[in-house]
């Protein structure tokens, strides 16, 4: 028979780690993913600061037009005599140059950070909500019959239908027909990208709904919505959240593609996408107007992708190395 562990031995063992802590350590070992994560945290802070500094306490004003100061390359000091003193950029330097209207590109990029990230996060938020709702309904009430078809068939056929649309073409059609507004873009991107989430949540729910903890919850007469949202969703959500990280990246790219075609976020709101799309006209005269937003999008989307992939590996023990 096994002897009970004395308290001394138990103290000598390392404290057991929670599931989250364990995953976190795996992520930390992936240097690239961890660096991307830190970069994204920094970016989030930057976005909040950018919002504050361009709107609340206007330190960098992205809206000042100085026509005598257009197309100045990055790091040009402010020396103009034509422009009034109060329109001078903060610190007297155009860090990232000026655009075709003499607006400070640094201030515009700062403003665009929060707008671009908002587009990404809200779009993904919408797609997650719809996806979890439909996937959860299909997985949990799958066997319930509505007339002659089951709920599962109904929802999954609808998912199939949505998957048949050429996504970008559909987004373009709807965005072009609707009045131009930043909210429409977020909603449309969100509503055309929930299908993967729904399929995933449904599959997880099918596996979860016959497990003991769900039966236990049912036996206590806990209402069904509570079982779904409090008991089952947290168990199914981790992989979905991981792919949501990559979804944010995709949404930022989609917004920049829409901007390129002229249907993106409209001025005066600045996003990385429309700064890049506007800059392309001046590619040869003012290459920084293309390169700065272009490389910003590249690095940020890359960070989202690498971080998402790192999280996916950390949360999926089958993928993690050593095998």
């Amino acid at each position: 028979m096994k002897e009970p562990m004395t308290s001394l031995e138990a103290d000598a063992l390392a404290p057991s780690k929670g599931l989250f802590q364990e995953r976190w350590d795996i992520l930390k070992r992936n240097r690239m993913a961890y660096a991307s994560f830190l970069f994204l945290v920094f970016l989030l802070v930057l976005a909040v600061m950018g919002k504050v500094l361009t709107h609340v306490v206007v330190v960098f004003d992205p809206k000042i037009v100085r026509l005598s100061e257009k197309f100045l390359p990055p790091l040009t000091p402010f020396t103009s005599v034509l422009t009034p003193k109060e329109d001078a950029p903060t610190f007297g330097v155009y860090f990232l140059g000026t655009d075709e209207l003499g607006r400070d590109v640094f201030a515009r990029m700062l403003e665009g950070t929060s707008v671009s990230l908002t587009v990404g996060f809200v779009a993904v938020g919408i797609s997650l909500t719809v996806g979890v709702l439909f996937g959860g309904l299909a997985g949990f009430y799958g066997r319930v019959k509505l007339g002659f078809i089951t709920v599962d068939t109904l929802i999954m056929r609808f998912v199939d239908i949505m998957l048949c649309f050429p996504t970008f073409f559909l987004i373009l059609t709807v965005v072009a027909l609707l009045p131009p507004s930043i909210y429409n873009i977020m909603i449309v991107i969100g509503l055309t990208s929930w299908m993967g989430t729904a399929r995933f949540v449904r599959a997880e729910f099918l596996a979860l709904r016959d497990q003991d903890f769900v039966t236990a919850a049912r036996s206590q007469a806990i209402p069904e919505w509570r079982i779904i949202f409090i008991h089952m969703v947290p168990n199914a959500i981790a992989p979905v959240l991981v792919s949501a990280t990559i979804g944010v990246a995709t949404a930022i790219l989609t917004e920049s593609s829409l901007s390129f075609l002229g249907f993106g976020v409209q001025p005066p709101d600045a996003t990385w996408g429309n700064i890049l799309a506007d800059g392309k006209t001046f590619l040869f005269d003012a290459p920084w107007l293309t390169f700065i937003p272009g490389f910003t999008i590249l690095f940020v989307v890359l960070a989202f992708n690498l971080c998402g992939e790192g999280l996916r590996e950390a949360f999926n023990p089958k993928l993690s190395s050593t095998s």
């Binding site: 920049s256 593609s257 390129f260 392309k280 293309t290 272009g294 999008i297 590249l298």
Partner: peptide, 21 residues
């Protein structure tokens, strides 16, 4: 691996402009 992530992350039209130049 790194290049494939970088190429997924770059906006297609930005890369195309670089290629045209």
């Amino acid at each position: 691996t790194f290049f494939s992530y970088a190429l997924i992350s770059i906006p297609g039209f930005f890369l195309s402009y670089l290629a045209i130049i």
